[in-house]
Amino acid sequence: MLNTLVRYFNLIVITLFILLLISFSLAYFFPGDPYTNLTGKMLLADTDGPLAAAFREGNVLQQFWYYVQNLTMGNWGHSFSSALPLYDQIFQTLPATLELTFYASTLSLVIGIPCGMLAGFLHHKKTDYTFMSMSMVMVSFPVFWLALLLILIFSLQLNLLPMSGRLSLLYDIPETSGFVLIDIINSSHPDRDAALYDAIQHLILPTIAVSFITTAVFLRTTRRAIVDVMATEYIKTAQTRGLPFYVIFSRHVLRNAMLSILPLLAIQISTLVTNVMIVETVFSWPGVGHWLIQAIYERDYPAIRIGMLLVSSIVVFFAMSLECISRLIDPSRDNKKYA
């Protein structure tokens, strides 16, 4: 238990350290002055601070050290294009991304896993084939094209749902938590209900676009796990013991299937985040992905660097945590010593 925790903690720390190294080296790889690329400010003779001093001296190790120090202190540099502190910008956009990711992954889990179970139990039956071909089609959709298609059909043709943004400009909701639904519920706006309705309408299309592929992947993963578990000796034995189906399902099938699904879901996090970023761009969703891609267009090097570092850190952290949890709750993995 402790062993596993320590191992995964080390793994996360080392991976994050490598990410830091890469993000620091980006400052040198981008064209222009490394100090400017790192902080968004010019390195003048009278610029104060230890990082500037290190750059004047040219000691790379010291530069890296003070760079990391600045990062931990929330001193993430300034954007080229807006000259605003990146720390504030990121924490304005990050909640929108997290919100979209959360809704999309919840939707995928709620639809994908039960359908996958159904398909797994009805292995090689019509239901199974239907679900499998449906998920095959769903997986094959390129996410940007799907997003455009959704806009085309539901916004432009049918005129049912808004095509971009997070909330109509009519509603002026003060941002406190950054999560639009929570903000609306907590606000004392006179048209709160209308705003909530509007926000949900804005959410529908991006959520569907993101969860489309993820649902299909979850469905296929779950189906495979259920089929594998159902074919094992211990399920056969449980059946010959005459246990009723619900006991076998809840005590033996579910747990074993989940144990093999969890690590695979951890891998899916990076795909999910990528899809969220693409969808954000298409729907002009004011999240980190949209912001980062804008930064790339504008060659806003400090923003690209910090965006890349943040998104990859989040992916690494969540993926590793999920894996660590699945390792911790899986009793048969105890005996495997190494990560």
Binding site: E233, Y234, K236, T240, R241, G242, N256, D330, S332
Partner: peptide, 19 residues
């Protein structure tokens, strides 16, 4: 199978749920 016939299978480790 529940009440009348009981079976002991060959490979006990495979026949027991690992989780």
């Amino acid at each position: 199978m529940r009440r009348d016939i009981a079976v002991v299978f060959q490979d006990p480790v495979a026949a027991l749920d690992p989780s």
